[in-house]
Design a protein around this nucleic acid. Sequence first.
RNA 1: GAGGACGUAGCUCAGUUGGUUAGAGCGACAGUUUGUGGCACUGUAGGUCGGGGGUUCGAAACCCCUCGUUCUCCCCA
Length: 456
Amino acid sequence: MNKPGLPQGTRDFSAVVVRKRNHIFTTIRSVFELYGFQPLETPAMENLDTLMGKYGEEGDKLIFKILNNGLDNPAKEQQAKEAFSKILSGKSSRDITERALRYDLTIPFARYVAMNFGQLTLPFKRYQVQPVWRADRPQKGRYREFYQCDADVVGSRSLLNEVELAYIYSQVFSKLRVPVTIHINSRKVLAALAEICGGEDKMMDITIAIDKLDKIGLEKVKEELSGKGLNSGQVAVIDQYLSIGGDETEKMTQLKTLLGGNASGLQGIAEIQYVLDRCRSLPAGSRLQTDFTLARGLNYYTGIIFEVKANGVQMGSIGGGGRYDDLTGLFGVPDVPGVGISFGVDRIYDVMEELQVFPDDVAAGTRVLFFNLGQTESEKAFALMQQLREKQVACELYHEQAKFDKQFRYADKKQIPFTVIIGSKEAENGTCVVKNLASGEQHTIAQAVLPDFSFQ
RNA sequence: GAGGACGUAGCUCAGUUGGUUAGAGCGACAGUUUGUGGCACUGUAGGUCGGGGGUUCGAAACCCCUCGUUCUCCCCA
């Protein structure tokens, strides 16, 4: 017998972890609902065509493909062999694989919007909390199966959406008791910078280089830019751009000086200013600030971009998002703009562990353990237990008659805070003993009033 | 896709230049005379030393291959 194991990069979640994760999920969901977003769920698998070509060349390689069934059908042996040789030469073949696990939630959402465009009330606001799969090599904080929590608005160009999304971030993290800073920038500002420094076609290179700033440092970024063909004057402009500092007013002034001559730049600056002005009263614990070094790796963003970092914790971003144009164009429905955000649950979990901000009652399981002290005793206990369950109190009856020692230890191990003891004496005179395991206090009360006992 | 580190009991790990029957702590289970737990004491179970091959009189240890885990880079959440 081989030892059982898990596929690389996947995890089991035990009770305590599931409860803590659910606390994060339900908090996020409740805030999404509060802002008028509706839930959407899509299948774990999509047609391969839907996913291929949407995430760049690297992304295609990281999609988990599903082997077709029936490949062993003798009648189709020749076809299967030809298809497989196509696979060997690096192309995918519909005769071998025509479905794949979803890689993110955005493309399935775009597919859904395109398929149902006629029926949707615009602007369409949906949220989605589901696992996604990537055939990436796992490493610290990175898995092959992980959850994404996305909220998107499509069919609206209004910047009010950006403002609301910033408030959602703020409200969620306030509820989770995680102090955060929401960084914002605009792809239009970055586009303007690219136009000034070597043209639009350099935008990708510049974006990627800037995105690495906090990882590799200013000098390395400049080196990388020179390597991509920017001359020293152009690198100097980017150096100047990355050095913008001071309070928000000063930063915006410097940005205007640098990029104000560019139409795209002006627009980006105006949009950032709008969001800044309308996010003055974010819930306590979070702040919004411009960060012109923010770039975001994904290339479909076109307007405001966000990234959220926990204050005082050494950890990458715990959320990100931004505005995109024409997400559904790939699926035949052009001109549908949108803006969305995403929460990184696994990192949020780690941050909350580090800050120790999970509420104590998150781990609450069984509240009361009924001792099993014999046939007739346990029958009484069972009947009483059912009454408590009716009152929404989580109970268990010990599974067999056993010594006190054993039953107490079971309660200890499962961190059950109360026991109810009904032995022969109690069974006879209609009472029961309620014991608080933490304090050791115990009371004898009538069985009739047990259902009204508050196990606090 | 490239490169490092590590695989010994359920868990965390010892294990001397290669040398008897591979150990500890924690955990599990049982007991310390069946109505009050956490402690303590005693005992029991649990290992093809990741797998395969090689070197050797002798391998957990040395060599090769393989599988797995983990970390870094690329990319991302």
